[in-house]
Structure formats: structure tokens, C-alpha cells
Design a protein around this nucleic acid. Structure first.
Lengths: 223, 223
DNA sequence: AAATAATGACTGACTGGTCAGTCATTATTT
DNA sequence: AAATAATGACTGACCAGTCAGTCATTATTT
């Protein structure tokens, strides 16, 4: 239930942009866009794509419904832009920060830390869940995400681990072949939280640490 | 609920008249139900709950729309029964087959084999995906599934692995604490297939074997 | 056997509500 | 006045759920 009361409510949006200006500044336009996307994230992640109502998105963004259509041509595009806008930047950061000769242990540690700090409990977790649950119905999104994040992530992991494998770390070769095994507990954490979080909370931190422990305990080179 | 017991039993009770069409046999009713559920699986898994049309379910089942409502009171219940009916029996089988003193390696092997043969590529995979993607919007289903399958599965795994841990298998204790780590690659396999299956198929068999290899390589007792 | 009566599983046209998307109108700035 | 941004009432398609009616089947009577 969005409170539709107070008509004259003085919203604290810095750039009100009023009803019109000869040309809105790009910053104001961007800000509006961001506000709409934030509202969309909330509504979509609460109800899923099909059951989400654009009336709710508009209300939550403090905007009229018609305004949405000034920024996005239709519901599906809004949804796609939503996923695009939240997930793209994160991976870039990790890739950028990874020097080509990072030790595998450090890389893995950084990888998991990034997930803990940048995804867990943030809007990105909700986006990720949205992607997981709706992605199969939006091939464009799945393809985009695969191209921009997944395949590049795989290459990144493989690059680091193949070197480790050549240096004799036994399980590195296996992980390099199936980087999904490295990521799997993160995915499960997101799903678990969405399904059973209320009933039976999961110690995600503990689980991820346990996972790394399992991997690295078998990663020690044989003496 | 009229329990139609054996007719020859109590004899002429206030029987007013025995005219008319007889009640459909339980087998026939069950069969119809199964047909409707099969159609529902197809339609729901293709479009998701909200976007699935009961007109389509009816058409696919070769039945009029009104007939659906003779078997299920509404769309949501149909959906819930769908998930219930497909997933419940599987776990029972695994639990039943597991003797209390099974060696951990054998148990794990059986566990993964079961997933490969009973879930991968079957309707159960589609149901599982449906559960993952829609479950958060159906607390009843999530709770049911947690109670009937997940928590029992956890206990089963813990039972086996705790014994192993006491016998000195080093990583067994960790896995017993987070059985999710054992299952994670299966979940990822299902999600990967739904999102990227077309773009970039995953060698699930290979991945699962690799996973078991990683786990058991660190499970060897230290000499 | 044939006619009659009763039954209930099944049907599908219909209703009422919902919601994505539109557009005439209004407000604001130059 | 002209250009632009924003609005929100409105429309039309869509669909879950309903219900008056059909028909095959079975029991009873003649």
C-alpha cells in the first residue's frame, strides 16, 4: 500500500524539474531516471515482472504514470534497463582491480569479499534474484548478462587459476574448468535467502568461509 | 467430503433413490487431475505463474476452463498442488534408501546419481526451476518445501557426515555444518540451464563429477 | 426391452476487475 | 507566444473465475 495521501507533500527531491523547462539539464534527467529505476527495483523485486504494476512504480517514484513513458518506451525495456544499470558496473570494478599476476588465494579472497560487501544485503542482491527468477523469460537480458558479466568472469577466473594449476596447485585445474563451482554457494545464498530466509536464516558468511576452506585445503600443493 | 465406501455395507440407509449417473471412479478422477497438472506444468514453467493463462492450461489438457475449477479451487492452489505433487515423492525415495550406516562416499555418490537420473532433463527440473523462481512469492510453498524436503535432506546429510567427521574425515564436519555446499552445484546447474542453456551449454555431468572430486580429494583422512 | 427420470461431469459464453499504454490538457520556463 | 515537461483520466485488451445449460450415463418403472 503506497500512501497516496498528502497532495502537497514537499518531496525532498533536490531537482524538482517542475513541469517543464525548455530543456531539462542532463543531470536532472539522469536523476529522474535513477529515481524511477529505484522505484522499479522495489516493485519488480517484490512482485516479479508480470505482476508488477507500473502505477505502483510511478507512485513510488513520486511521478505520474505518463512520465515513465518519457523515460522508457515500455514495461519490458524498463525492466531490462533496471537489470542492466545495476549489474554492469560491479564486474568492471573487479576486473579492473585484478592484476594479471595476482596469487590465486588472494584473488579468491577478494572475489568473495566483493560479493559479501557489494552484493549481500544490497539492492544488487535483489537484482540478482530478479535476474535468476525472470531471466529465462527474457533472453535478451540473459544474453546481455552472459556477455557482459558471466563470460568475462569465467575468463578472469580461468586466467588466474590456469596459472595456479601450472604451478602445481591440484584442484586449480578443476576449478578453472568449472568456475561455476566457485560461484555456486553465492547463488545458493541468494536463493536460500529469498525462499527460506524468514523460516531458517543461513549464515552466509560462515558458509562462504567454509567453502573457501574446502577449496583451499585441497589446493595446497602436495609435499 | 462424501466418503463413498463399499456400497454393500450398511444396506438400505435412508436411501432415497439410487438413480442417476454414478460418481466417477477415483482412478478416472486421478487421471484427469494428472492430465491437468501436466498441462499446468508446461504452461506455468513456460510463462511463470502470473503470466500463465488458465485458458491455455485448459486447452492443453483438452478440457474446458470450467473443468479446471472442478479439480482445483483457483489458480494459486493449482500451482501449489503442481509443485507439491511433483517434488514430494522424490525425496522420500532417497531417504528410504539410505541405511543409517552408509559410508559417506557411497551416500554422496548415490545422492548425485539421483539428481542426474531423477531430476536432470526431467519435468522435475522444470518444477525445481519454477520453485526457485516463484517460491519467494508463495510463502506457503516455500515453507512446505522446506519442511518436507529441505530440512529433512539437511538432517539426512548431517547424519551421514557427522559420523564421517567423528571417524576423522576432515572436511566432513564442514559439509555437515553447511549441507548447502553439497547441493549448490545442482542448483547452479538448473539455473544455468534455464538462463544460458541455449547460449552456452554446461557439461553438468562433468561439473558434478568435478565437484565430488574436489570434495573427496580433501576428504581423505590424513595419513 | 423400452421408456422415463435423475444425476453430475463437463462446457464455454459471460462478467467484473485489472492494468499497460495513450493523449489532450496543464504547468513552467524562455 | 512558443517550446517543452509532466500529468492523470481514459481506453481497450486481457483474463480469473462463474454459472446456466448440455449430454452421456445409470437407475427405475412399465
Amino acid at each position: 500500500m503506497t500512501v497516496t495521501g498528502a497532495p502537497a507533500a514537499g518531496d525532498n527531491i533536490p531537482v524538482r524539474a517542475g513541469r517543464g523547462r525548455r530543456k531539462a539539464s542532463p543531470e536532472a534527467t539522469d536523476e529522474r531516471r535513477r529515481i524511477i529505476l529505484a522505484a522499479a527495483l522495489d516493485v519488480f523485486s517484490r512482485h516479479g515482472f508480470a505482476a508488477a504494476r507500473l502505477d505502483d512504480v510511478a507512485a513510488q517514484a513520486g511521478v505520474a504514470k505518463g512520465t515513465l513513458y518519457l523515460y522508457f518506451p515500455n514495461k519490458q525495456t524498463l525492466f531490462q534497463e533496471l537489470i542492466r544499470s545495476y549489474l554492469s558496473p560491479l564486474f568492471d570494478k573487479l576486473a579492473q582491480e585484478t592484476p594479471p599476476d595476482v596469487p590465486p588465494q588472494a584473488f579468491i579472497a577478494r572475489f568473495f569479499e566483493m560479493f559479501r560487501t557489494q552484493v549481500l544485503g544490497t539492492e544488487r542482491q535483489r537484482i540478482l534474484h530478479l535476474l535468476i527468477s525472470e531471466g529465462s523469460r527474457f533472453p535478451e537480458i540473459a544474453e546481455f548478462y552472459h556477455r557482459e558479466v558471466v563470460s568475462r568472469g569465467i575468463e578472469l577466473v580461468q586466467g588466474v587459476l590456469r596459472r595456479a594449476a601450472q604451478e602445481g596447485v591440484p584442484s586449480a585445474a578443476t576449478l578453472a574448468q568449472f568456475p561455476q563451482l566457485l560461484v555456486a554457494p553465492m547463488i545458493v545464498a541468494v536463493i536460500w535467502d529469498s525462499l527460506f530466509g524468514r523460516i531458517h536464516p543461513l549464515d552466509v558468511d560462515g558458509m562462504l568461509k567454509a567453502h573457501v576452506r574446502l577449496l583451499t585445503s585441497s589446493e595446497e600443493p602436495k609435499p
